[in-house]
Measured scan of single mutants.
Amino acid sequence: EQYVVVANYQKQESSEISLSVGQVVDIIEKNESGWWFVSTAEEQGWVPATCLEGQ
């Protein structure tokens, strides 16, 4: 499942990744806490779901 990044995010923990507007990410896991585990071409990590929008 692919989502587009709609807000920049700077990682704050080692388990997170930074996002840039316009990036496309694959969703691996959706957590009810509002944090999703995603994959980019370069890395995987947790990001806030509020930064993502379905395609």
Rank of each mutant, 00 (worst) to 15 (best):
I27T: 08
N8W: 03
S14V: 14
E16N: 07
Q44T: 10
T40L: 13
E16C: 03
I28S: 05
S20Y: 09
E13V: 11
E42M: 12
F37E: 06
W46M: 12
T50V: 11
Q12M: 08
I28Q: 12
E29R: 15
P48E: 03
E42W: 10
Q23E: 13
Q12L: 08
V24C: 12
P48Y: 00
K30G: 04
L19V: 12
S39R: 13
D26L: 11
V21T: 11
K30D: 01
D26P: 00
V4T: 15
N31Q: 07
V38H: 00
Y3V: 11
A49E: 06
N8M: 05
F37G: 02
N8C: 12
V47E: 01
Q55F: 01
V21A: 12
I17D: 01
I27R: 06
G54P: 10
I27K: 02
L52A: 01
G54Y: 12
P48D: 06
E32K: 05
W46G: 00
Q23C: 08
D26N: 15
T50A: 12
I17C: 14
L19G: 01
S33N: 11
A49N: 14
T50N: 08
I28R: 07
S20N: 15
K11N: 05
A49L: 13
S14R: 11
E42A: 12
S14Q: 04
V6P: 03
L52F: 11
A7V: 10
E29I: 15
I17W: 01
E53Q: 14
F37P: 00
E1W: 05
G22P: 01
W35Q: 14
I27P: 13
S33P: 03
A49V: 07
N31L: 11
S15Q: 15
Q55L: 09
W36F: 15
V38C: 05
Q55R: 15
V21K: 15
V38E: 01
Q2Y: 05
I28G: 07
V21L: 07
V25K: 01
C51H: 05
E29T: 12
I28E: 03
A41F: 10
I17E: 00
K11M: 10
V38N: 01
Q10Y: 05
K30S: 05
S39A: 11
P48S: 03
E32C: 08
S20M: 09
T50P: 09
S20I: 09
Q55T: 11
E32Y: 04
K30N: 04
W36V: 14
E42R: 13
G54N: 14
E16Q: 13
E43C: 09
T50R: 13
T50K: 15
E13T: 10
I28F: 07
S20E: 15
I17G: 01
S15E: 08
P48V: 01
S39K: 12
Q2L: 07
S39L: 05
L52T: 00
E43P: 01
C51R: 04
A49K: 12
E13I: 12
E29F: 02
S15H: 15
E16M: 04
A7F: 11
V25P: 01
D26R: 10
E32H: 09
E1C: 11
T40M: 11
G54R: 13
Y3H: 03
E32F: 09
E42K: 12
P48Q: 03
A41H: 13
Q10E: 15
E43M: 10
V6G: 08
Q44Y: 04
C51Y: 06
I17F: 02
E42I: 04
Q12W: 04
Q55S: 09
A41W: 04
S14A: 09
A7K: 13
Y9F: 14
V38R: 00
A7N: 11
E53R: 11
G54A: 13
S33F: 07
G34Y: 03
Q44K: 10
D26K: 14
V6F: 09
V5I: 04
P48K: 05
I27S: 04
V25F: 00
S14D: 13
Q10M: 03
L52K: 02
E1K: 14
S14W: 08
Q44S: 09
E13W: 03
Y3P: 02
Y3M: 09
Y9R: 07
E13A: 04
Y9H: 04
T50S: 12
N8E: 11
V5K: 03
N31M: 13
W46C: 06
W36M: 07
V24F: 06
E53P: 02
I28A: 05
Q2T: 09
C51Q: 04
G22D: 06
I17T: 10
W35S: 12
S39Y: 05
A49F: 09
T50Y: 10
V4F: 11
E1M: 05
T40D: 06
N8R: 13
A49W: 02
W35C: 11
V21Q: 12
E32W: 04
A41Y: 07
G34P: 06
S14M: 12
L52D: 00
V24S: 11
Q23L: 05
G22E: 02
K30H: 04
V25Q: 08
K11D: 03
G22W: 01
P48H: 03
W46D: 02
A7Q: 10
W36E: 02
I28P: 01
G34N: 03
Q44E: 09
I28Y: 03
L52H: 01
K30M: 11
Q2R: 08
E16R: 05
Q2W: 04
T40Y: 08
S18D: 03
A41K: 08
V38I: 05
T40R: 15
V6M: 08
K30E: 08
W46N: 05
N8Y: 04
G54F: 09
V38L: 02
E1Y: 15
S20T: 12
I28V: 14
D26I: 03
E1I: 05
G22Y: 03
S14H: 09
Q23R: 04
A7E: 11
I28L: 12
T50C: 09
P48M: 01
E42P: 04
A7G: 10
W35P: 02
Y9P: 02
W35F: 13
Q23Y: 09
E29H: 15
D26A: 12
P48W: 01
E42H: 15
W36C: 10
V24D: 06
T50L: 09
S18Q: 04
V4L: 15
S20P: 03
E42V: 11
E42G: 12
Y3F: 12
I17L: 12
E29S: 10
W46V: 07
G34R: 05
G45T: 02
A41V: 09
P48R: 05
Q10R: 11
L52G: 00
E16W: 03
A7C: 06
V25A: 06
I27C: 13
S33M: 06
E29V: 06
E13Y: 06
Q44V: 07
W36N: 04
Q12P: 06
K11L: 04
I17S: 03
W36A: 10
S20A: 09
W35N: 07
Y3L: 06
T50W: 14
P48F: 00
A7R: 11
D26F: 06
K11Q: 09
S39W: 04
Q23W: 05
Q2I: 04
Q12I: 07
V5D: 00
G22S: 03
V38D: 02
E1L: 13
L19F: 04
L19R: 00
C51V: 10
E13M: 13
A41T: 14
S33Y: 11
K30V: 06
V6T: 12
G54K: 06
L19D: 01
E42C: 11
L52S: 02
E42T: 05
V5P: 01
N31D: 10
Q23I: 05
E1S: 08
N8S: 14
Q44H: 11
Y3N: 06
E53N: 07
S14N: 15
E16D: 07
E1T: 07
E1A: 04
E29Q: 15
Q10G: 05
L52Y: 00
N31E: 09
E29C: 07
Q23P: 00
